[in-house]
Amino acid sequence: VDRLVILHEEAEDGNAMPDLSRPVQAVSNAVANLIKVGRDTINSSDDPILRQDMPGSLHRVEGASRLLEDACAMLKADPYSQPARYVRDLFVPHHQTSFSLPIFGNRKKLIDGARGILQGTSALLLCFDESEVRKIIRECKKVLDYLAVAEVIETMEDLVQFVKDLSPCLTKVSREVDSRQKELTHQVHRDILIRCLDQVKTLAPILICSMKIFIQIIAQGGKGAEEAAENRNYLAGRMTDEITEIIRVLQLTTYDEDEWE
């Protein structure tokens, strides 16, 4: 889009436009492939937000592609035909050099088409990415649900079941958050995710240990059970905080941070 703005400002009218058939055809083919993958993604997704938002982005890309094809066909028919007249030439006094100049005709169609494709693709990827983030968050929330029952586990049998339930879920969160942080370009967000994940990995076995101690204490008469429960609850709370922070950071975009500027 920046390139288009430069073009917008630099373009001189009156020149013949080259035949853009090949690059426009390449764009059309790429659009067709992306639309196909996009539709497959919509059809196979169980995320209602994605199913609602993604078609709009696809239509935008498709519409922009048609705009490009139209402009290209017209240019091919008559390369000099574009009525690319600038407002500057018509209305603006010569001393006013910085002025937003609308471009008309085929060149405008080309530029609008290319801009529409970039913006539509960007919206499409954002929509898709947000859906991927929601998937990870769903797993994180499962972990939170398990952590919430830690304090009602009072037998070894229940603890074994607790570990059986929690372990695969934690492994999944760990794998997905780790792969997510590797994709991020925002260093601060990456660092927070890495730190929180390390904390979760460290705390998990200590929590299980504290739960086991609590169970052993109450099995032996209950002396010190209160302290053991406090310790267990503290650890479950710490893990809950770390997972909650992971969920918060996963939802941040680069635009949430001033430093991105």
Partner: peptide
């Protein structure tokens, strides 16, 4: 397939960049 979506988007972005370059090439002359 998440990888395929990103791959196709990247191909499209490259094709669009080349188109812009082609239009811009005209503007430079």
């Amino acid at each position: 397939d998440s990888g395929e979506m990103v791959r196709q988007a990247r191909i499209l972005a490259q094709a669009t960049a080349q188109l812009i370059q082609a239009i811009k090439g005209e503007a430079d002359t």
